[in-house]
Write a protein that binds this DNA or RNA. Sequence first.
DNA 1: TTCTCCCGCCACTAA
DNA 2: TTAGTGGCGGGAGAA
Length: 935
Amino acid sequence: MVKFDARPQTAAPLSSPASRAPALAEEASFGGRAMEVNCLTLQDLISPRQPRLEFVIEDGENAQKENIFVDRSRMTPKTPMRSEPIDLSKQKTCTPERNPITPVKLADRPQSEPWTPTANLKMLISAASPDMRDREKKKELFRPIENKNDAFSDSLQLDAVGDGPVDEFEKQRPSRKQKSLGLLCQKFLARYPSYPLSTEKTTISLDEVAASLGVERRRIYDIVNVLESLHMVSRVAKNQYGWHGRHGLQKTLKNLQRLGEEQKYEEQMAYFHQKELDLMEYKFGERKREGFLEQDQQLLDFSEPDCISASANSRKDKSLRIMSQKFVMLFLVSKTKIVTLDVAAKILIEESQDVADHSKFKTKVRRLYDIANVLTSLVLIKKVHVTEERGRKPAFKWIGPVDFSTENGEQLVDVSTSALPELKTKPHSPFQPCVKQRLARHSSFNVIPSSDGIKRKVSSEPNSPHRGEQGSDEYCPKIVGLTAALREKIDENSQNQGCINKKMIHSSDKLDPVPPFPVHPQDSEYCFHPLSHQVFSVTPADLTSIHLQNGLDGHMTFTPTPTASKTESLKSTVLPNQPLIYVPSASFFMLYGNFQEGHSKPEKGHEMLEVAQAASCSTELSALPLASSYKRRPQEAHEPVAKKQSMEIEDGPLSLVLPKKFTDPSDVASPRNIGSIDTMPFEAFQRFSEIPLAEDSPRKTTIQCLVTPERRKHLRNADIEKPSKDRENLSEENTKPQYLYVQSAPGLNGFNFLLPDHQAANAAGPSPSQLTSLHVPCMIVPSTALAPMPFFYSPAINSPVSSPGPVNFGLPGLRSSTQLLIDTNILSPKTSKALSMDPQHPGQSPVHLSPGVSRSHNTITPDSPVCMGHPVTIMKLPQSPGPVTPKSIRPPYCETFFKTPGSLGEPMTWRKIEGGQRNLSTAQRRLQISSGSTD
DNA sequence: TTCTCCCGCCACTAA
DNA sequence: TTAGTGGCGGGAGAA
C-alpha cells in the first residue's frame, strides 16, 4: 500500500533512522505489490500549510499488525502479484480514489496537534465521502479475528460488508475483550500441552504463533515473558522458545515463594496496606531496603540467565519477567493470597527505585494487568475485588498451588488417588501438595497418614465427608454443595485419571457460578455464563443421589449426595427447586485432550481410551476402591480453558455416557462381574460424582436430577416408603440399560435430554440387540435458548413399532455437540427403589417396572414427536460391584464414559469396544468400555 | 469516573 | 546492519 505522507518539514522524525529504515524497506517491498492508495489526512484537509509531500509506503509490518484482514475482492489490485492482505487500518486516512494528498503517519504529527488516531480517523471519515466511511467500516469489520471461532468470523461478515448499516459494523467489530491479552494467552496455551512428554520438544516460533493467533508479535512477547518467568517456556533462539509446560511450575513457585519470604514481601504488603489506610506509621528501614535489593539480585539469578545482570532501575529490572515473578511472589507469601494491584505496583516501584509518580504507578499497573492476564489464563490467579475503607480495589487472588512442601518427603495424595497404587507417586502431579494445605484450611478435613504411608484426607465429620467448604472462600460465598476440598479431590483425581471429570448439568442461576477448581475467571471469553432463567427444577428428592454441578468454567462436578444416613447432612450441590442447567462445557472436550494432540501424541489424546482399555483388561483395577478408578492426567486438570475451548472448536463434540447397571440377572452374582473390569465405568463415574456407593448394592445407580415433576413425586413417595434396607434388595436387581440422553449445543444453544423412564417393552429382559437400541422412553428437552422447554417424548420404548436399531436424536438447527447418556439407573436409589418395588420383577431394574407403572410416570404423551437426527446406539455397559470401602457405602453409583460424536449432523453411533480395540477417527472418537457383554 | 489494557512507537539488544 | 525484544504510556473501551 502506498500513501503519501504529508509531513511538515518542521516535523522531526520520531523514529530513528535505524529503526525506520527496515520499516521503509518493508514498506517499499510491500508497496510494490500493493494497490496504490492515496491517503488523505485531516491534516491535509484542514491544513494548508503542508509544505511538501513526502512519499511514504505503508510497510508490510504494519499490514500485519493485529491481523488486519482485507476484503481483497473489493480492492482493485494494481498488480497481479498482490496477494497479501492490506491493512485497512492503515488506511484510516486513505481513500483509494484520492491520490494526491496524503496523510502523515499519526505518529509524525506534531505534538501540538490534538488529534488522536481515533479522533483523526473520525474526523476524516466525517469529512470524507461515504465511500471513505464505508471503507473505514470495512476496515473495522475485517479486523483480526484471531479466532476463527469468534463471533465475527468470516463469511458472514464478508457478506455483510457494504450491505449492512453502520451499526452492524460496529456490532461485528471485535470487542476489547475479544482482543484481550488474557484471551490471547488462552489461545496460546491451548496450542501446547500443559504437561508435555519429556521426550517431546516443543518449539515455539513467535512468528508462527503470532500469525496463527492473528496478532502482532509484540503481544506474544508479553505472554512468553510471563510464561518464561514461570519457566514454562525458555528462549532457545531468536524468535524461538521452548515449551516446558507446567512440569516445573511447582518448583518454580516454590522458589518464588521462598524468595518472596526472604524478600519480606509480606511485610512490604502490610506496610503499604497500612500506609494506605493511614492506620499506622510504618517504614522499612534502609537496611531492609537494601536487603530487598539484594534479594532482587537473588531473584534475578533464579529467574533467568539473561536477567542476572539486572540491576535496580535497569531496563531488565523492569522487565515483565521480573515483574511477573515478583508479582507471583506477592501472592505466595500473602496469607490471604490476595494482592491488590496498587500495593503490588507500589512495591514494584519501590524496588525499582522509580520515581513514584502517578505516571509510573499507572505504568506499573498496566504491566501488572498484563501479567495478571497471563496468570489468570494459567489458572493461577483470579480477579477479585477488595473492599477497603477507601473503596473497592482491583485485586487478584491466588488460586494456584499454595503449598509446595511435603512432609517427611511423603507425597500427599488424595485418598482416592491412593487407591491406585500406580498413581500414588505419580511424579507429575505438581499440584498434589497443594491439596494438603487446602484441605488443611477446611476444618472438615484432616490429613492423616495412612497405614501405607500415604497421607489421606478424611473427614473429621463422619456425617459430612465433603462438607466444610461452602462459604469458606470469601470470594466465592455462594458456592453450593461442592466443597473446595472435594473439588480439589476431584481435580486431583482427574489429574491422573483421564476422564469423566467432565460433568455437566449446571446447577442454577441462583448458584454462584464459582468454578469448582481453579479455572478461568468468569469473565473469560471461554467461560460460560450463568443463565438467567430457570431451566430445570430439581426437588430435594431428585438430588439425594447425585448432584451435578457445572461451574462456569465448564468443570462439571458431581457431588455426592447422601442417601445413606451417614451422608444425609451433606449439602446438596443443587439446591432444591433449583434449576439444573446443562452447560456445554469446553472442559468437556478435555476428556480426550486436544484432538490434534491426540493425533500427534496418541498417548495423550487417547488416554481415556487407554484408561478404559486398561479397565477392560486389568483386573487389578477392579479391586480398587470405586472412588478411585479413574484419574485424569494433570495436564488435563489444569488445562487452560482456552485449550478446552479450542478443542471444543477443533475437536467437535464429545459425548458422555453414563451407563447404568446393565447386567443380566444371572450375572448379578457372577464372580466375573463382581470386581471385574466392568466396574470401571461405574467407578469412574462414581469417583467423580462422589456418589455414595453402597457396598451391598453396587449395581444401584440413581440419578435424581432431570426427572419430571411427576416422576419426582413418585420417587419421593417411594423413597419415603422404602427403608434403606430395601436398597439392599436393589443390589440383586437387574437393570436394563436406560439412559439419560443429553445433547447440547455450545453456548447453551442446545439443551437436549433424554430422560430415561423405563423400559417397559423389554421389562422381561431385552436381548442384546434390543439393548443396543434406545429402547427407552425419553424426553428430549430441546434447548433453544432454554426458553420454555418443549418436550419431545420418544415413545420408542413403549411403542411396539420402535425399531431396535439406532434411534436418532437431534434437533433442527442445533449444532451437534456434547451428548450425554446417563443410564436411568443414575436415578436416585430412592427412585430406583420406588420403581423396583414391583415384586413381579425383582430382578429387574428399579426403573423397569411394569409398563403400566412406567406409563404412569410419563408426563409426556407418547404422541410427542421424536426428534430425529443423530442415531444413537446404546452400548451395553455392564457393571460390577465395587470394592468395599468406606466410601463405597453409598447406594447409588453410575458409570460414565465419553465419546466424541461426529460433526454436526453426522450420525453418532454408540458402540462398545471389544477388549482393547479402539475405534478412533478424526471425525469421531469414542471411549468404549468393554462390558463383557455384547451389543 | 474509574478500571482495564490495547496498541504501537521506538529504544535497546542480539545476531 | 538488521531483525528481534520489549519498555512504555497514550488513550479509549468497558464497567
